[in-house]
Design a binder for these strands. Structure first.
Lengths: 183, 183
DNA sequence: CGAAGAAGCGGACACGTGTCCACTATATCG
DNA sequence: CGATATAGTGGACACGTGTCCGCTTCTTCG
C-alpha cells in the first residue's frame, strides 16, 4: 500500500485478509466477527483495526477480485450494447454478486456512502460513472443522476433477506433502471 | 396492548417510551442507547427488551403520532389529486419526516422489512398499498410493485447523511417515482 | 381476606466492538 | 554494525447489546 511498509506489517495484513476469507468461506454468512478474525490471524485487535479501520475496508479487500471484475466489465458491456442495456446487464451482474457474495455490495455501498461527499466513489463508482455518462450522451439516461445516487439506490440489495430475494431483487432493479431512463 | 395487562407493566411501558422520547429530543441524534433509556426509565434491561423486543419497536412507539399522520394522509391526498401526484406528495411528506425525525422512517423500514414475508406491512405499508392501488387502477403506476417494494426503495432516506440530504433526497424520490410509473 | 400461581421485573452475564497506549521490532543512518 | 527514532503491535478496557433466570409483585379466585 504505502511505500516504506514494514515487512511484518505486510505479513500481518495478508494474514488478516486470509483469515477473513476463510471465515467467510466456512461460515457462509454475512456476519464477520472481527475479534475472532484477529485471533485466527494471530494478531491483536489493534492491529486489525489499524489495517482496516472499518469492517467494510476489510470486506473490500477480501472481495477485491470480484470488485475488479465488476469494474472492468463496464466498458466491455458498452462496446456491445446500447448504453441503457449495458447498464441493465451490469446491474444484473451486480445482483449476482450481491446474492452469492453478500459482502461485496455491502462493502462497496458502505465505503462509498461514507465519502459520498468527497467525490471519491471508489472503483465501482468510477465504473458506474462511465456507464451513466454513455447513457446520458446517448440520451437514454436522465442527466440529473450520478454514480453515488445509483449506488445508494441499489444498496437495498445488500439488505434483502435470502427469502425475499427471488421475488424482489431483479424486479426492483428494473424499477430503478426505468427511473434512471431519460424521459 | 393486551387485555389483562398488569398495572405496573403499563406504567413501565409508558415510562420507557417517555424516557426514549426525551433522550431523542435532548440528544437530537439517531443513536439511542437502550441501556441508558432503561436506566432513566428506572427499569431493568430485561423489562425494556420485553416491552420492545427490537430497537425499532421502541421507535415505532415513540413516533406513533407521526406514523398515524402519514397513514391518514394517504386517502386524503387521493381525494384531491391524480394518484401519481398523490403518491408524489406522500413521498414528499415522508421525506420531510425522514429528515426531521430521522427515527420515523428507520423504524418503519426496519419493522416492515423484518416481516416482509408475513405480508403484514404495518400501518405505513397499508397506506402505501392504498396509494399504489389507486395508481394502478388509473393506469399510472406499474402493476408489478407492492408496498413492500416501495418501502425498500425509499429506505435510503433513513441512511442519508445530513449533508447529502439536500442534494439527493428529493431527486432520488423522483427517480423512484418515475420508476414506479406505468409505461 | 389470604393463598397461589402467573405475569412481570431487573440485573448479571456473555459477547462483540472499537479505542488507547505502553511496549517491541524494524528500517535507516552515521 | 550498532544506535535510534518510529512504525507497528497486541491486549486490556470501556461501552453497548441482547438473553437468561431467580425473585417479586400483581391479580384472581376460593
Amino acid at each position: 500500500m504505502v511505500r516504506n511498509a514494514r515487512k511484518d506489517a505486510l505479513e500481518n495484513r495478508a494474514r488478516i485478509v486470509e483469515a477473513a476469507r476463510q471465515e467467510i468461506a466456512s461460515s457462509n454468512t454475512t456476519e464477520l466477527r472481527l475479534n475472532a478474525i484477529a485471533r485466527e490471524a494471530g494478531v491483536g485487535q489493534g492491529t486489525l483495526y489499524r489495517h482496516f479501520p472499518t469492517r467494510e475496508a476489510l470486506l473490500v479487500e477480501v472481495y477485491r477480485q470480484e470488485v475488479d471484475e465488476l469494474v472492468e466489465l463496464a466498458p466491455r458491456l458498452l462496446e456491445g450494447a446500447e448504453p441503457v442495456d449495458a447498464l441493465a446487464r451490469w446491474f444484473d451482474r451486480v445482483a449476482e454478486y450481491a446474492r452469492v457474495k453478500r459482502g461485496v455490495l455491502a462493502a462497496v455501498e458502505a465505503s462509498v456512502s461514507r465519502d459520498l461527499t468527497t467525490h471519491s466513489l471508489g472503483p465501482i463508482g468510477d465504473a458506474l460513472t462511465v456507464l451513466l455518462h454513455a447513457g446520458k450522451t446517448a440520451g437514454q439516461v436522465r442527466d440529473d443522476v450520478d454514480a453515488g445516487d445509483v449506488i445508494i439506490l441499489i444498496g437495498y440489495l445488500s439488505r434483502l433477506d435470502e427469502d425475499e430475494w427471488d421475488r424482489r431483487a431483479h424486479r426492483l432493479l428494473r424499477v430503478i433502471l426505468d427511473g434512471l431512463r431519460h424521459r
